[in-house]
Design a protein around this nucleic acid. Structure first.
Lengths: 204, 204
DNA sequence: TTCTAAAATTGAGTCAATTCTGATTTTGTG
DNA sequence: CACAAAATCAGAATTGACTCAATTTTAGAA
């Protein structure tokens, strides 16, 4: 229980993640060589591979930190949503999007998304899918909350609606990170416009 | 005009694509080594790189063949859609999905999607984005057609709706190819369920 | 037919992720 | 303290995508 070995292990994990995050930002994912990450983290190359299956898993750990933070922030909105369906969705989605580039550059997102579809069964691939599911679930929870409050019709298929909203947002976000020139306000506006159709259909 | 050089070029392109398609299917994308593709196509490794920027572009050429075929098939539905909004959407989307595994295995799709987000500015990355846009546009055309016929309300934002439907379908398809066990009928049923919400909102 | 510049082909070499090795160090336990 | 198990280390070997300088082929002018 929290013996020296466990503490050192956690410490090494942290050092590797910090080193990788810094180098990924500075040099890009491809540009950050494993040897360089190892040197910066003051461990050997072999040790990195003892902790992570491959380079993608290191990025995966960083992405998980980011998304979990976002999920946390989102809980606030679900608990006390704006008193208007359109605004409620926009606020939650806004949190996701505004947070998205805190730790991760667009290039890092591109790599992370690519790896998660390329290797869906790797540790990171599975974790990424789980994170997507958690986000979908949070949107569904918001809808359920809005139904409770009486802002959304009771006969709406909440599960299907949650998926629809998440899938659309996610694909828009993918296109967003694919274009370096794309700006956050325009992304949000485009999603708002799309959701307007849904809002019209589900608001009481 | 169709000189020797041009003919040989076309022939080499064809041989490379055929060799790659065969090996991708047999050994998977990663398993198909460039040297093996070169040997099978009876060209050198260097020549392949003279024709394609990277391994992903070879896969990209195969994907383009597939998607263009699908776009063609889709035109028929847009021209003469079923007389019911839900069925019209389901028919068009059905064509996309049912065709999808003709030439390409799930693994090939995964790789193709991954590469298109990883290298959005490579020839294939741009082509893939263009194909997505063409599919979105075709869905939008179907909606416009349904508006003409009087099955869809005139005041619907067709562009936003087309994006919404495509984005959702596309994300569902991505999840579909990520799980080898996932089956086409279930994918179609899930998308139908999601679209039902939209259909209720837009049908006259 | 012959010659030349441009176009295309070639395959050995480079680079970086990953694996492997064998030695050394560290830790938990009796 | 001693020992066995677990982890780490440095770095060599492997692997496969991609590059590039040298060589070959082609078009078309003389």
């Amino acid at each position: 229980m929290s013996g020296l070995r466990a503490r050192q292990k956690a410490d090494r994990h942290r050092r590797i993640i910090e080193a990788a995050a810094e180098l990924f930002r500075e040099a890009g994912y491809e540009g950050a060589k494993i040897e360089a990450i190892a040197a910066q983290a003051e461990v050997s190359v072999g040790t990195i591979y003892n902790y992570y299956e491959n380079k993608g898993d290191i990025l995966g750990a960083i992405v998980s930190l980011e998304v979990n933070e976002v999920l946390n922030a989102g809980q606030g909105v679900v608990a006390r949503p704006p008193a208007n369906v359109g605004d409620a969705l926009d606020t939650l989605i806004g949190i996701y999007i505004e947070h998205s580039l805190h730790y991760l550059s667009k290039e890092m997102w591109r790599q992370a998304m690519a790896i998660s579809t390329q290797l869906p069964d790797s540790p990171f691939g599975q974790a990424y899918t789980a994170l997507d599911r958690a986000l979908t679930e949070q949107i569904r929870a918001l809808i359920a909350r809005l139904q409770e409050i009486g802002l959304v019709r009771q006969d709406i298929d909440g599960a299907a609606l949650g998926e629809l909203i998440f899938n659309n947002m996610n694909m828009m976000f993918i296109e967003f990170v694919k274009r370096d020139a794309a700006k956050i306000p325009e992304l949000r506006a485009a999603i708002r416009r799309q959701n307007r159709i849904l809002v019209a259909a589900i608001a009481v």
